[in-house]
Design a protein around this nucleic acid. Sequence first.
DNA 1: CTATCTGTTATATACTATATATAACACAAG
DNA 2: CTTGTGTTATATATAGTATATAACAGATAG
Lengths: 129, 129
Amino acid sequence: MLLSIDFGSDQPIYTQIRNGIVTGIASGTLKDGDSLPSVRTLGAEIGVNLHTVNKAYQLLQSEGFIEIQRRRGTFIKAGNAAKNAAEFLKNCGDPLKTIVSEAVTRRVDRAVLHQMIDHMYDELEGNES
Amino acid sequence: MLLSIDFGSDQPIYTQIRNGIVTGIASGTLKDGDSLPSVRTLGAEIGVNLHTVNKAYQLLQSEGFIEIQRRRGTFIKAGNAAKNAAEFLKNCGDPLKTIVSEAVTRRVDRAVLHQMIDHMYDELEGNES
DNA sequence: CTATCTGTTATATACTATATATAACACAAG
DNA sequence: CTTGTGTTATATATAGTATATAACAGATAG
């Protein structure tokens, strides 16, 4: 299944949905123009209210990942992906700083983080490590 | 000031306090054995309730960053820093995956993330870039 | 000894975020 | 006309966050 929800997580369900779809786009599982399940269908599949799915969809649309066409459906919009690269770089600074700060205190070498990132890139881009 | 709180942030105050102290340890501003302000003092300084500070301190102690000595004070405990490196690496995977996934969709090259991380390491370790 | 300061515990309150439930609406598509 | 979209509205419940106030117990300093 594309999305698996951890109901015991401290992460909100709508955030998990959002992240799952972003990862789907990154891995190529979801391609430009692909249609997403309706809020009711996806909600039923993963055992969640339609409003929770709708909240995730609204967030994804505001971030430019999908396009919601009223009374028609919801579609992947990976075309103008690079457009919001600048805003992403601005937003990812804080969480990255939090990770790096803890890494330094834990005596984790920067090379380890580099390797983790490379591995994630390779996995998403379909290259075996 | 060591800690600056953004009351408009979506990040909880106690998390901001936690992250600020971790960054302080990483940058060397807070050294092993240094004493932290009391929960009341720090609360008054940054305009926050003592329970909010206490929550951050409890979290930091559970993570091994500080040691709370009842009725004596609270102290930085950077000695066994590398001990919890394994757990850190396990925990940082998810947020890192979220960042990398979005980076891939935004067509942000891995080299950009590497550079950001290197810059943060250099800054924390006191090396000019 | 006394006063002060420490973290700690307890209780109460308020606000926000999250999530669900139910119903209805408007309109495109078959 | 029926079905299926996203959408809006309303209500409710729960949990997380934050504050407020008070008290406790013991280490420390005077």
